[in-house]
Amino acid sequence: MNTVTPLDPWARFRAATRARIGLGRAGDALPTPALLDFQAAHAKARDAVHGAVDFDALAAAFPGREVVNVQSAAADRVTYLRRPDLGRRLEDGCRASLEKGDYDIAFVVADGLSAAAVADHAAALLNACLDRLSGWRVAPVVLARQGRVALGDDIGAALGARMVAVLIGERPGLSVANSLGVYLTWDPRPGRRDSERNCISNIHADGLDIDGAAKRLTGLMAEARRIRATGITLKEDAVRLEGPGGPSDALVADQRGQEA
């Protein structure tokens, strides 16, 4: 009997991906350890979908900045899951707290489908963006309970913002239950189509890091302001026509120059 553990030929690749590669086979099926690993991850993800964001703790992460709490028309998680239309609309009682102003950008943090994503990454990303946006007129930070992406249209319109960035918890996968996404929409108002938005997804420890995400988002924002549009007309390539100093920074600076 061979007692030597064979060299894992997949070892080199496992460092490059969290995909479940090289699992081995029991006949055609998954070996028992891989089968149970999968079931454990699925159980964790299902539990994560039903978690709740601590919005009070989140508000404390933006010292010196006005924070507004709102709720969508979906009263609870079960309604949220079955009625996305309600998650896209502001609860009527919340409108009064959103005062119209002269804003270049409004940021909305919504729980979406992963409370963990918002808890782990939203404050860091938003603060990293704010650091890069001196000269921009930024609306009060809006924290939205039971919110979907399009809730940002309603909020952005109420605030009178030229564009809205919605930071939202993405649907948990088996490998990652805390992935954050950002959707940027120019001239937000109810009825905007998904093709009129730009999306940055997979922001988490093993995906896009906070610094990279902040660079891309502020780069997209600058380009959106230049061409006065988001969506399929805003190609990410335009954001990356860079000098060595960092593409998005260059564009942001450019924009500021034009404004001054």
Binding site: T17, R18, A19, R20, I21, L23, L30, A34, F38, A41, E170, R171, P172, G173, L174, S175, V176, S179, N202
Partner: peptide
């Protein structure tokens, strides 16, 4: 791989 899409999260 292993029924788990690590990019699209499904």
């Amino acid at each position: 791989p292993g029924a788990d899409d690590v990019m699209l999260n499904y």
